[in-house]
Amino acid sequence: MGEEPSIWEYFTRNWSTGQPGSIDTLLGDHIVMSLLPIVAALAFAIPIGLACVRWRLLYQPTAGLVNIIYALPSLALFGVFLAVTGLSQATVIIPLTFYAVAVLVPAVVDGLRSVPEHVRQSAVAMGFTPLRRLTRVELPLAAPVVLAGLRVAAVSSISLVSVGALVGMGGLGYLFIRAWQIDYFAPAIVGIVGIVLLALIVDGILVVSQRLLTPWVRARRSG
């Protein structure tokens, strides 16, 4: 064994090698496996949340169920899906979608419930059709709360992907395994810094889009 390279050297040497385990590929996988579940979860959580607000009795059982899913250890869940979907990204994406749904359903429900009753009533009285009321009044007003949930879901998803390394699909999490295998810490540091930076960037994008999408909330703070 030669001299251990520095962290920076490890990073530049392994950035774009064209081999499996090249850092740029790992980063790309990581982004797909962490963010696809968020997008999918939002598509599930909005109708589920709407149903829970529309039929109040549905909310308690649904909330219980999503909490139980959230409590399941991710590694166990990845193991289960490994048997179903094999060594593919779906093995990580599907469980992470569950977790994100578990975070987003309460956010959607709370967001919709935060719409003041007099605002809802006046939308009805002015002749909004139910669909138009939903898309033009209720969902826009629920957006700040939903976006707050989306930030939590996105950051936790980015962090959880690395656990997938233990079933062979972990994006940047692979670097932790690599560090263990070669008994040398540089890859682990690169992995940690990469994941944290990715989380910060995604969170920043969500904060900026929140400001752009909900100008009336910002105006309220400064006003």
Partner: peptide
């Protein structure tokens, strides 16, 4: 909805759309 668009409605707390 058609009926309501032809009738003005004013509610207690104004019910303005905050957004």
């Amino acid at each position: 909805p058609t009926l309501r668009r032809g009738i003005g409605y004013v509610i207690q707390q104004a019910g303005l759309f905050p957004h």
